[in-house]
Design a binder for these strands. Structure first.
Length: 104
DNA sequence: CTTTTGACTGAGT
DNA sequence: AACTCAGCCAAAA
């Protein structure tokens, strides 16, 4: 019985909840961590998030250290705001500072 | 049933 | 640095 994509929702959300404060994760790393190989599927799963206050989906960023354009809960600005609250800082190009150190 | 659409990535130009 | 393009594959149209 092959797994469906929806079966990966809980593993991903668990992973996000378990991320230490101040840590972020890229789509590709997140995908590999839960056994997926297509990062686009992470985006699909995050869209299923009904509790953005419980599930820190704002911690998922692009592999180049910037933010995805389609963040569902208020756009890039809102996501950046939440990340700053975690102690993450951005340069003038919207790229995360110390990206390598923040990465999970 | 077929086509299009993504919260993407990595390689190539 | 900016821009394509193919690969990826479940969902939605």
């Amino acid at each position: 019985m092959p797994k469906k994509l929806s079966d990966y929702i809980n593993p991903l959300f668990s992973l996000l909840i378990s991320l230490p404060k101040g840590k972020i994760i890229s789509y590709s790393i997140a995908a590999k961590s839960i056994g997926l190989d297509n990062p686009r599927n992470i985006g699909w799963i995050l869209k299923q998030n009904k509790n953005p206050d419980t599930i820190p989906c704002f911690k998922v960023v692009l592999s180049n250290g910037k933010l995805a354009k389609g963040y569902k809960f208020g756009g890039q600005k809102e996501q950046q705001k939440r990340l700053k609250r975690e102690g993450i800082f951005f340069d003038e190009n919207g790229r995360i500072l110390n990206f390598e150190q923040c990465k999970y």
